[in-house]
């Protein structure tokens, strides 16, 4: 049998073929009392080293569940992954033993969460929590780990790191706490960093600072970055490409400037139109009408059809595949050409 561990330095040709992380036709469902919730229905995306992918979508569209499946931190049961692959440097991590996965989780693929106050343990000092990465994964002494923690806190620009390393999470501001989360996540130089709505709980000025920090850290370390958000405005400057999710599917993926210039899916268009823009000051903001579908009872055909302003009769019956528009772009809309041309009403 092949050794399931993953080579850090695969042959050059393999690097060329296979991106750093590939999510391929991933399905995740939850067994609940009401029935099976199909939270993720065939999501695919890729991230290369040094690349930022923004995953965009309303709350409940399956962004976090996808990320948790990549990390392997879903509770199974109730969760189940009936189909799909998550290939990290060419190896499907879903097939790895729990032990082999433990070698990747946190060390090579790391994650930060939305609410840093609840995501940090209230009863341990921040230095202890950052240092834990070095003590547990690198066998460092308490003292060395603590020094590493100070270094990392400096690196994420927490003022007076040496004095504050023994403080507790509740003694920091929201922005500083998120910096601590980031310090913890990048502690062991992960190759992929997943940031799940890292700025949603913060006020606007702090949001921009955290985004800048993430972008800077990524440039320095060349890691692949997955930025999950429901707010397109937050990621526009940082992301290279965007995957838009709706009801557990990718409905459009594209390079950031392409989608900004001209979205290829009515849902992406709706999201773009609902961002406040300087040149549209004073005009009423657009909002997509209606609510996302109930995952227990998905509408037939295109899941977006009850809310779609372009809906045609066949949208109700035929599920749109992800049409490939170009090498870097796809849209799951039967009428993407018309949406791009602006010829549909």
């Amino acid at each position: 049998m092949k050794n399931p561990s993953i080579d850090t330095h695969p042959p050059a040709d393999e690097v060329a073929q296979e991106p750093l992380l590939v999510v391929d036709n991933l399905h995740v469902e939850f067994a609940t009392r009401q029935g099976v919730v199909r939270a993720v229905n065939g999501v695919s995306y890729t991230v290369n080293a040094g690349e930022s992918l923004a995953v965009l979508g309303e709350s409940g569209s399956g962004k976090s569940v996808t990320a948790q499946a990549i990390m392997g931190i879903l509770d199974m049961p109730p969760a189940r992954i009936p189909k799909g692959e998550v290939r990290f440097r060419g190896t499907d991590v879903l097939q790895l033993s729990e032990q082999a996965r433990g070698q990747i989780r946190g060390q090579r693929i790391a994650m930060i969460f939305q609410d840093a106050l609840s995501a940090l343990n209230p009863v341990f000092t921040v230095g202890w929590q950052i240092g834990e990465m070095f003590r547990v994964h690198r066998g460092m002494s308490r003292r060395d780990a603590n020094n590493k923690a100070v270094e990392l806190m400096d690196r994420v620009r927490i003022p007076a790191a040496r004095q504050r390393v023994n403080d507790y999470p509740h003694q920091f501001s929201g922005g500083m706490r998120q910096r601590i989360m980031i310090a913890m996540a990048i502690a062991l130089d992960p190759e992929v960093l997943i940031a799940d709505e890292p700025t949603t709980a913060l006020d606007v000025t702090v949001q921009a600072q955290i985004m800048d920090l993430l972008a800077e850290l990524q440039r320095e370390s060349n890691m692949g970055l997955i930025l999950i958000t429901h707010d397109l405005g937050v990621v526009a400057d940082v992301a290279d490409k965007i995957a838009v999710m709706y009801a557990g599917r990718i409905v459009e993926h594209a390079l950031v400037h392409d989608i900004y210039k001209n979205p290829a899916h009515p849902y992406s268009k709706g999201l773009l139109d609902s961002i406040p823009r300087v040149d549209m000051k004073g005009q009423e903001l657009y909002a997509i009408k209606g609510l996302p579908p109930n995952l227990l009872n998905m509408p037939p055909g295109c899941a977006f059809h009850p809310r779609c302003p372009y809906g045609r009769p066949n949208c109700v019956t035929d599920v749109p595949p992800l049409y490939e528009i170009s090498g870097t772009r796809g849209s799951a809309c039967h009428y993407y050409r018309e949406v791009l041309d602006g010829t549909v009403q």
Partner: peptide, 26 residues
């Protein structure tokens, strides 16, 4: 169910440590 327990798992901590250090004390 707490978020910080999920964080500990995401940090790659072994299950025994997640339970014994991160969850138990709280």
């Amino acid at each position: 169910r707490a978020d910080y327990v999920r964080t500990a798992v995401a940090k790659g901590m072994p299950r025994s440590r997640v339970l014994g250090r991160h969850a138990l004390r709280n």
